[in-house]
Design a protein around this nucleic acid. Structure first.
Lengths: 341, 341
DNA sequence: CTGAAAGCGCTTACAG
DNA sequence: CTGAAAGCGCTTACAG
């Protein structure tokens, strides 16, 4: 199965009877080439089926137009949605996505290794979706002039951009929703304890509860996992006196809670227990759940990410200063059927 | 934010007082370097924080260790699962994933454009998950010596590898399951009409029906989409005489069907209508659905893909012949609660 | 085992 | 507007 080597710039130059520079210029938008020259080049290129080699270009320009994206947990539908939107937005801007999925159980060290691995591909920037970054690596990226944006995570690391939702406000909204519906014994199912989203949502939630003068009834760990959330629901609701309202730190867990409540414990939602989630993943809208939830504006977050990315890349290539952005998108309540009223 | 340029091979060589070749060799597994030399190089490298530039290496070796992956529809959980497994398997083999998500509504021409775009990054191979390939592009890849494997799709294109499930057997199994449970009026909800999976599943299904001597009660189009499947369910089940069993060509549609049946039409599954899906996505196991389905062995498909990929890349780089593989993984019935008995 | 040199396919000052 | 030349960071025969 012998294959012919693809045509190169110099093949085209030769055929067209011009210099390499001329060919390069006709493929560089905005470069100055005489119409006649351009014409001959284009023709020769077409004839040879020439395609510029992006790798070679990267080597000389030091811009790969590749963005490294690392993501951790695709079970939670929020991430596939984000990846889809992000990759499409990036494609529209002429960038490509080098994808890494870390399995979530990895230690910081292995994630670091993988990141260094990606860095070898001279990515123009890094976006880390729900992955925390060791400050060592953050340093490394900074030193190498590679912008990094944390997506759906915040971290007080200098030089690292963050885009996330207003988790705090979301937490408040959740508490408010449950409170207003008349719930008396409100429980919280926490996400991964070291995630900023978990922390902020809980903070907002607790703050609102406190202002309403009601104490939290119980707290359980769901670690943002379906199974752990089922277990949490069991733990919370199999006692004599159980919560009548649950705020789960994300939809993925909220769905697990509903499944467990209804099919395992024979409880009705919202009659016996009200449930509020966070994210508004597609399944929340499915009739089997009809989950009342706090929506994260995935589209808005993605757009903000792309904006920051592009600005940061521009600045970095000009070796300019670009102070790190911390962007927060608003959230809103999507009222469906899992809370009374 | 001035950043220092990363150290290069020649920086290391200089510091270590050896030639570039020596440095290159110490970073090439299996190359011959004297222990003492290697030691000095390693030390110098560590001191400078040297990381080989994968892009430069690609340019000389003509192997990027990048695999282009294009996928179309992340709503269907089957794909996130596949991406996760595939990217992890590839990472274990030292490959990286350049991801493209086509929005599914694209015409063949735009997909082709994007593929040419990926090709410019000198990917070592291409895997297309549920995306069909124009034979023009297939030709192009072949000419360029880039192996391509179609994942979960088959196509009679010479030189293109395919890995998919035994959709035909799966279709038969689905019919058999419905038939054995006593269904009399069995309907089929089709996937995208031009997908090989759709065709094969229907073929198997019809064949089994025919052998049992029962005619299909109805057929509707679901196009592998949640919304279209809801519509199909409505169309099928809002008449006076409706099906008592439905085979949906994938789980994503089966879940939509169940949602519509239960919450919109007030029907019970499986008492009023039995449902069988295809894929065994994670949600099928969730208690809200408990969907009886034909499982695709995602893990097995991914492993097969990686195997073929690696063999094909080896052969291609040696300019050897490697006949195109058509691999079919077995499927099995996962019996849950949506079919009686 | 080691080094000098050529080359991978492009871009980019620099002259003209 | 155009071309010759150097260079991006690596690898790989080829001599030694």
């Amino acid at each position: 199965m012998s294959h012919t080597k693809p045509a190169t710039l110099s093949d085209v130059a030769m055929l067209a009877g011009v210099s390499q520079s001329a060919v390069s210029r006709t493929f560089t938008p905005g470069a100055s080439v005489a119409p006649a020259t351009r014409e001959r080049v284009l023709q020769a290129a077409a004839q040879l089926g020439y395609r510029p080699n992006a790798i070679a270009r990267t080597l000389t320009t030091r811009r790969s137009r590749i963005i490294g994206v690392v993501v951790s947990y695709l079970q939670n539908q929020f991430y596939p949605v984000v990846i889809e939107k992000l990759s499409q937005a990036l494609q529209r801007h002429g960038y490509h996505v080098l994808l890494f999925v870390s399995d979530g159980h990895e230690t910081g060290a292995t994630v670091d290794d993988k990141l260094m691995d990606v860095m070898q591909y001279q990515v123009d920037a890094l976006v880390l979706a729900s992955v925390t970054l060791s400050s060592a690596i953050a340093q490394g990226c900074r030193a190498a002039g590679v912008p990094v944006v944390l997506f759906n995570r915040t971290a007080p690391i200098d030089g690292v951009h963050c885009v996330s939702s207003d988790n705090y406000a979301g937490g408040r909204l959740a508490a408010q929703t449950l409170l207003q519906s008349g719930c008396q014994r409100i429980a919280y199912i926490a996400g991964l304890e070291d995630a900023s989203t978990q922390f902020e949502r809980e903070q907002g939630f607790m703050q609102q509860m406190q202002e309403a003068g009601v104490k939290i009834f119980a707290r359980a760990q769901g670690r943002y996992s379906y199974e752990a959330a089922c277990e949490a629901a069991r733990e919370l609701c199999s006692k004599d006196v159980r919560p009548d309202g649950i705020f789960a730190a994300n939809d993925h867990m909220a769905l697990a809670v509903m499944d467990t409540l209804r099919s395992e414990l024979g409880l009705k939602v919202p009659q016996d227990v009200a449930v509020v989630g966070f994210d508004n993943v597609p399944q929340s809208a499915w009739p089997a759940y009809g989950l009342t939830t706090i929506e994260q504006d995935a589209e808005g977050m993605v757009n903000a990410t792309v904006d920051v990315l592009i600005q940061a890349i521009e600045s970095a290539s000009k070796n300019e200063l670009f102070t790190s952005r911390k962007i927060t998108q608003p959230v809103r309540l999507i009222r469906r059927t899992t809370v009374k009223g």
